[in-house]
């Protein structure tokens, strides 16, 4: 591969890794700092992507409308799409939290799993909503036209990295505040946190909503990168499982770890695709399964031998404390 092509390839890899890093940061709020077990990330991924798509594309007209059904299309700017995705995902997080956050921790997992599957079914079956299984295409991209379309990915990489860093700083700030310390206290020991007069339910709810909003932004960033989305993208494998492996590998409870994990695991994931090129022809069609099998085994190894991940949690909880 010539150098230009190779760099372009690295850029596309970095864009996806950064988008996954946004999901890891969102999950880190919920799991890493509060201990909320959300295994329906794919649902927030899906809703974030579709919300932003419908906010930023125009409603199809004329002959085009015969082929593409879309309940609304507002043709608004990219930033509105991001904010809208965050808002809708936050509302969904709130609605899931109501029946589950007062119960045992694994009920939230089952409910989020259910909601992710339900959203995929809805987007697949309801053609009037967002064009059913064919999905939506032609999503606008921000700052389009500054450079030639061939080099646009450089611009998008910068956009994604800036948003990722903004979210990183926001979470770092929040987690070092008294609010963040309450979340950690709840994760460590709910009963003593509630005996200190903290309303467990409300703090968990805020964490769930905050994390869901970040995931919504991740979904929107993905949608505007690929420019076309369909419900079969948001599977439990690509939408939930790999993000969990990323966060556990990087180090839950550590935002730098969340970002690092996303880059490392995505690198491994892409790297193994070269490895499977060496497989005999008969196995090639099933190569993705072999790669996911390895990722699954990797998760089990991390859980048993290094549950703190690569970086582990930072123990310092306030900037006012000495190192």
């Amino acid at each position: 591969m010539e150098l230009g092509g190779f760099i372009a390839y690295l850029v596309s890899l970095a864009i996806m890794a950064s988008i996954y890093a946004v999901f890891c940061l969102g999950l880190n709020i919920q799991w890493g700092y509060t201990g909320l077990f959300n295994i329906g990330i794919a649902g927030f991924f899906c809703v974030g992507a579709y919300t932003s798509a419908m906010l930023t594309t125009p409603k199809p007209t004329g002959i085009y409308a015969q082929y593409v059904n879309q309940i609304f299309g507002l043709n608004l700017p990219f930033v509105v799409g991001l904010l809208g995705a965050a808002a809708v995902c936050g509302i969904i997080g709130f609605l899931i939290g109501i029946p589950t956050l007062k119960l045992r921790e694994d009920y939230l997992a089952i409910a989020t799993l259910g909601i992710a599957e339900t959203f995929r079914l809805i987007f697949n079956n309801e053609h009037w909503l967002a064009n059913g299984p064919r999905g939506l295409m032609g999503l606008p991209q921000p700052l389009q036209g500054i450079v030639s379309a061939k080099h646009y990915n450089y611009i998008y990489l910068i956009v994604v990295v800036i948003i990722m860093l903004f979210i990183y700083l926001l979470i770092e700030r929040a987690i070092r505040s008294p609010w963040g310390r309450v979340l950690r206290a709840i994760r460590e020991d709910e009963i003593s946190a509630s005996m200190s007069g903290k309303d467990i339910f409300h703090f968990k709810m805020q964490s769930l909503i905050f994390g869901s909003m970040v995931m919504g932004v991740g979904g929107a960033l993905y949608a505007h990168y690929t420019k076309s989305i369909s419900p079969d993208v948001f599977t439990p494998l690509y939408g939930t499982f790999i993000i969990w492996v990323m966060l556990m590998a990087g180090g839950s409870g550590n935002n730098k770890g969340a970002i690092l994990g996303a880059y490392v695991i995505w690198g491994i994931w892409i790297g193994t695709s070269f490895m499977t090129d060496l497989l005999p022809y008969t196995l090639k069609a099933r190569a993705p399964y072999i790669r996911f099998l390895l990722i699954g085994i990797l998760l089990e190894i991390i859980l048993i031998y290094r549950p703190q991940g690569m970086l582990g949690e930072e123990k310092r909880v306030s900037k006012l404390l000495e190192e």
């Binding site: 201990g35 997992a109 499982f241 099998l293 990722i295 699954g296 998760l299």
Partner: peptide, 20 residues
């Protein structure tokens, strides 16, 4: 929750073996 996560990994491992 770590057990549940481990079982989630086990679920994917089983399914991948079936698919392979």
């Amino acid at each position: 929750v770590i057990f549940a996560m481990s079982s989630l990994g086990a679920a994917f491992i089983l399914r991948m073996v079936i698919l392979i």
